[in-house]
Design a protein around this nucleic acid. Structure first.
Lengths: 198, 198
DNA sequence: CCACAAACAGACAGGTTTGACTGTTTGTTT
DNA sequence: AAACAAACAGTCAAACCTGTCTGTTTGTGG
């Protein structure tokens, strides 16, 4: 008796793909790349194996698409976080924001892909350019937020160091998330940076 | 007619285990944790599957032993590198030494285990304490090499930041090893550190 | 020299994973 | 409405991985 709600193919397809990509990222975070099987993903997404194979013929196709999706999400989250940084205590708060992002699940998922890609040429091909893109964008954003003058010698390197630092902190956070330690370090880094930059 | 060279059991056993552990680490570096199978390890080590299972009944036993072995190696390599740092340009050379270590294959292997351990309780139990130990030792060594005075406020955090920075640089190096970029960043950080520390 | 235990070798079963394949439903187009 | 294509469902074979098991060799203690 239910009216067979008509749903256009394109939308169905898009929803299905989105669910699969979301599930893939969730699996990466929760069980890691190694144990993330296509079966697990389809179960988690509530999608039949047939449908999954229809949209993503191989596991690699699915994972690569997930990489792209994740890059999108990371960009959006970063931009949102950047917009929320207040004007006062600029440096400190910018660093804390970066530290938080690089300790979040999206970064964890990216890390899993990053490490997996190291020994998987097909995956590397997808991961490397996107990661570079995110890296460049993050760098530009950070320079912007800090109001740093990159024409001065050493400034560019300090910003890069800052980003590599939060990456290192993010890595440490995946095993033992000690946000107090992280913030202490970042606060001190902020003071040092303020002394060295302008 | 060859004299059947008599080799005591203990030595044979030790050599066999060493070969297996070496092969395990090599596999971690070359194919990653995910694709590292017990079969692959035994092939690579030139050890029969039976012998392998005799010395390490389960895969986990083997990997855990490899973690311990790797920790040993990391400690030795770090100590050796530390001893080789010259007296002049202290800070710069110490940082470059750390940067090199965290971009070396031993770190790559440790990274694979680190990431895998995040979602593998049994592995985490073995990795976490050893990693903390290495972390503490590295910290102490760095403080020593830099002649830093940790009683001053902020100094401890700066040393921690330095170590997290090289960790982040090491992570970046696993995909695109750009040692020039790394050294530029570290050199600048050395200058900043020299200005901030004493 | 003999009995015993450790070290070693290789086959085998149970379980997973992947992607191919066949068949069914649903939307679109004419 | 009919023909067609896309979306979806579920089964299956091949490959692989792990750990058990049986059998053989080699060193060691009596």
């Amino acid at each position: 008796m239910t009216t067979p709600t008509r749903v256009p193919q394109e939308e169905r397809s898009r929803a299905m793909r989105a669910r699969l990509l979301e599930a893939t990222v969730e699996c990466l975070v929760e069980v890691g790349f190694g144990r993330t099987s296509t079966t697990l993903i389809s179960e988690r997404a509530g999608v039949s194996r047939g449908a999954q194979l229809h949209h993503f013929p191989t596991k690699n196709a699915l994972v690569v698409a997930a990489v792209e999706h994740l890059t999108e999400v990371r960009g959006v989250e970063l931009a949102a976080a950047a917009a929320a940084v207040p004007a006062a205590h600029r440096t400190r708060d910018v660093l804390r924001m970066l530290g938080d992002h690089f300790a979040s699940p999206v970064f964890t998922a990216a890390l899993e892909l990053w490490v997996a890609a190291r020994t998987d040429p097909a995956l590397l091909e997808a991961v490397e350019p996107l990661e570079q893109k995110v890296g460049r964008e993050t760098h530009r954003m950070t320079v912007d937020l800090l109001g740093a003058d990159e024409s001065r010698p050493g400034v560019r390197e300090l910003v890069q160091a800052t980003l590599d630092l939060v990456r290192g902190l993010g890595l440490a956070a995946t095993i033992s998330d000690d946000s107090r330690r992280r913030n202490r370090i970042l606060d001190q880094w902020a003071r040092t940076l303020d002394g060295a930059l302008p």
